[in-house]
């Protein structure tokens, strides 16, 4: 049988949506194999299936999560390389105490900024990272930041509109 271990360690720690998880490295159901992508670990091992895998090729953006605050593709990231990192997924955006939705989630509801919704978690995560870095992005900033996100239903116009209302509200 092929070796699925990490020679240097036998466990890793992931801090996912502020909760710390420790995983053994190996092939068992609740372990993380060396070849597991972060998308797989989040979805299958942690049951956080809000992160979607559209292409599994690094080319659609639907699996985007924040790694130490930076948007990355979880389908092109090995979980074992995330040891000690903070990961935020779509499930982690709501306020934990109040249950209040993130302003982006709310704006997406208000503008129906989705159709089938499969691309939506990835787009929201990338949008969150954008607004964290730049609270008042221009339309071009928004489009550039989301340029790696595929949406086949073409919700783009409503997404841009939703994000623009957030920044306009803030300006007021």
């Amino acid at each position: 049988m092929a070796d699925r271990t990490d020679q240097r360690r036998d466990s890793i720690v992931l801090i996912v949506n502020d909760v710390t998880h420790e995983f053994g490295i190996g092939d068992h159901r609740y372990q993380v194999a060396a070849c597991d992508t972060l998308a797989k670990t989040l979805r299958e091992t942690l049951g956080l299936s809000g992160t979607k895998v559209g292409c599994n090729q690094g080319a659609c953006g639907s699996c985007t999560v924040l790694l130490d605050g930076i948007p990355i593709l979880s389908c092109m990231t090995l979980t074992v390389e995330c040891d000690g990192k903070q990961i935020t997924t779509i499930e982690g955006l709501q306020n934990k105490e109040t249950g209040k939705l993130d302003e982006i989630q709310q704006a997406f509801i208000d503008h129906s900024a989705f159709q089938c919704g499969f691309c939506t978690p990835g787009i929201i995560m990338a949008s969150r990272a954008l607004l964290n870095k730049n609270p008042s992005p221009t339309e071009t900033d928004i489009k550039d930041a989301l340029s790696g996100h595929f949406c086949r239903c073409i919700s783009h116009y409503q997404v841009v509109e939703a994000l623009q209302t957030i920044t306009e509200k803030k300006k007021k």
Binding site: A2, D3, T5, Q7, R8, D27, A34, C35, L78, V80
Partner: peptide
């Protein structure tokens, strides 16, 4: 992905 060993 097919299995491999990972070393840092």
């Amino acid at each position: 992905m097919k299995a491999f060993k990972h070393i840092t």
